[in-house]
Design a protein around this nucleic acid. Structure first.
Lengths: 233, 233
DNA sequence: CAATTAAAATTGGTTAACCAGATTGGTTTG
DNA sequence: CAAACCAATCTGGTTAACCAATTTTAATTG
């Protein structure tokens, strides 16, 4: 029931080892925020790992805002306190690969908010894109074909209309794991797709009429089956 | 008002160019899901970029579940339809660096859900960790010192208790941007910290008593000031 | 002795060479 | 003729050499 996302299954362990060693370095050597880390070459040798692996790990910690590499200068500890850094590093080390349940739970949360925001912020162009996606979906379903992709496109169109780039990014990050599991466990069968037509139209209408409460409610209906399924798996 | 997160400010543009070229390749050469991409060396030359840049981009698309590299074998297109891939690639290309407003909006959404889940799922160990973090926070505030870090640790402890790894990851991803902006715009002044003591205690009590609704409500109170601030910036 | 400047060493980033394993095509063999 | 096998080749991953810019050091000069 594990999903390969947000963590590299391969280098994951070696990366975690490196992160732990960096944490030790910061604590043991009493490095303070703003201080410079030893050079990549030195650290790679000290840790007994390749420089490329070390660089990948540093990039990951840059992504989490803990380190910052300056070209031809060095890698620095971001200007947040050592307590916070320790807490975040512990969390990163403890992070597991999200299971399907986590993904679905999170997706529903995101999509409910997105529906609300989309109803509030959608432009006419957004609406047009949603309509196009929805038509493509309906056509596929009526033809009795698989429409998981078209479904996805519709939901991404809504996300775009919500005008929140963080939410958009998270939707994208979550999506592949969802799709893979859908296909693996055959979550979407034909019947559900047919029900989906009306549910999608309801969501679309609510967003069109700029009714955030209704949009969220209709999205909730849409996810009800998925929600229950996810909790019985 | 831009935050350096979720996108590399530097190689961002070159990466987007590469992604666009990969998209063209898939569409123009009619590559289907499951197909193998040309080798890294070939693509690097064809695109006129360095192999390392190409590899970084491929890893990013692997992260989004669009490509999959197999050692000593090749890079393959994941088994999702070409429509979905096009939609996702478009989205990735359009992704902006989240602004502060997006971050705060998303953080509040995540934290409200997290508070609810934590109240439902917290173990006694979780509670102990939260208590420790909270004590550290209170002490700092009462001493008149800055307590942004201790605040963060407390919130991360709640997130841990929510037992949802996706939500945990997203909190971590969002956090650095929030901290940076907090410091930049002096969001947290001493008065707010003092109010924070009671607010935090309320959240803690609700989670301790396993009252999800109250936990969410108290978290909402806690974020009210931030929310308003965020919408007036 | 202090200020200046130039050169040498150090830095992260990039490029090219190398590696082990998977793939492939042709050859051999039953 | 088909199946088994082996070597040449191609693959992503790794390592080492290289680059340009920065930082440090030391020599020079007023």
């Amino acid at each position: 029931m594990k999903v390969e996302i947000l963590t590299k299954t391969e280098n994951g362990n070696i990366q975690k080892e490196i992160i732990a060693k960096i944490k030790d370095l910061i604590n043991f050597k009493n490095l303070e925020p703003g201080d410079k880390l030893p050079s990549e070459r030195m650290l790679a040798e000290k840790f007994g790992v390749s420089r490329s692996n070390l660089r990948e790990t540093i990039q990951k910690l840059e992504f989490y805002g803990i380190l910052k590499s300056m070209p031809q200068s060095g890698t620095f500890i971001e200007n947040i306190g050592v307590t916070a850094i320790n807490g975040m590093l512990d969390d990163i080390l403890r992070l597991e690969t999200p299971d399907f349940k986590s993904l679905v739970e999170t997706r529903i949360l995101l999509e409910l908010k997105i529906a609300r925001l989309a109803a509030l912020r959608r432009t006419d162009d957004d609406l047009k894109e949603m309509r196009t996606a929805l038509d493509a979906y309906n056509e596929k379903v009526r033809a009795g074909e698989d429409a998981v992709e078209e479904d996805l496109i519709f939901h991404l169109a809504i996300a775009k209309a919500a005008k929140n780039s963080s939410l958009n990014t998270f939707m994208l990050v979550i999506t592949p794991g969802i799709i893979t599991n859908f296909e693996k466990y055959h979550v979407c069968d034909k019947n559900q797709s047919f029900m989906g037509i009306q549910e999608h139209e309801d969501i679309y209408d609510a967003i069109k009429n700029q009714d955030p409460k209704l949009a969220k409610a209709k999205m909730k209906v849409h996810f009800k089956v998925l929600y229950q399924y996810c909790y019985n798996i």
